[in-house]
Design a protein around this nucleic acid. Structure first.
Lengths: 107, 107
DNA sequence: AGGTTGGTGAAGCATGCGCTTAAGTATCGT
DNA sequence: ACGATACTTAAGCGCATGCTTCACCAACCT
């Protein structure tokens, strides 16, 4: 999942897909590389559950699947919240200590 | 940044650092690999701005830096929002078409 | 002082990743 | 029917990554 988003080209593809569904060649157009390479990137994104595709006739249409994005977002925000809560507790602890100092040790 | 989070071991290190600062060897303890390898992972995380470290005496203490995490979270949530807004517009468009059909074409 | 602990740095190796070329296949337009 | 289009698949190549080992240094402990 993060692996899939690690590559800049893949992120650009995701970016493009934000603005609506696209065929493989549309996706490839702005990406100085072979169609083959794009398909390989695409299959990584698909494997990570980031995009869903369906083939109609000879053209494969791709669109974003936000569920995976949501999962990644949650992972990050959970860790961040965890750390920031800890940070706040530390702040509170320091403030408390500060008060203790002002009032003298164990009065 | 995503590159840095792509590796499971690195994610585990981040996970560990959520629960508070740690020395390099504390970080290494649960991670079936050499200290050397851990330091290398650490420098990747540090390069991505995910952790800050300072060395006191001979022990390097590491802690999370949430700014990078926040940036990643924002990137994801922006794309997701973009896509979901588009999706809603599509829904509205379809609903509108549906109405048009019920009322007959171009009345 | 001398051993132990905690970390550093360089070199080397195996695997994986991103990409290309090349040779298909299936569908579409005329 | 025939060529163009839109992929698909497989093989191969070079470079990055993840890891190890080994030698080393700087605190710390006693």
């Amino acid at each position: 999942m993060f692996q899939a988003l690690a590559d800049p080209n893949r992120r650009q593809m995701v970016q493009r897909l934000c603005e609506g569904p696209a065929s493989v060649s549309e996706l490839a157009a702005p990406l100085a590389m072979t169609l083959s390479a794009v398909v390989q990137h695409l299959s990584v994104l698909e494997g990570a559950g980031l995009v869903r595709t369906q083939k109609i006739g000879r053209v494969r249409t791709c669109q974003l699947d936000t569920q995976a994005l949501r999962a990644a977002e949650r992972w990050i925000s959970e860790r961040r919240a965890l750390w920031e809560r800890r940070f706040d507790r530390l702040g509170a602890f320091l403030a408390e200590q500060d008060q203790d100092v002002k009032q003298g040790d164990e009065p």
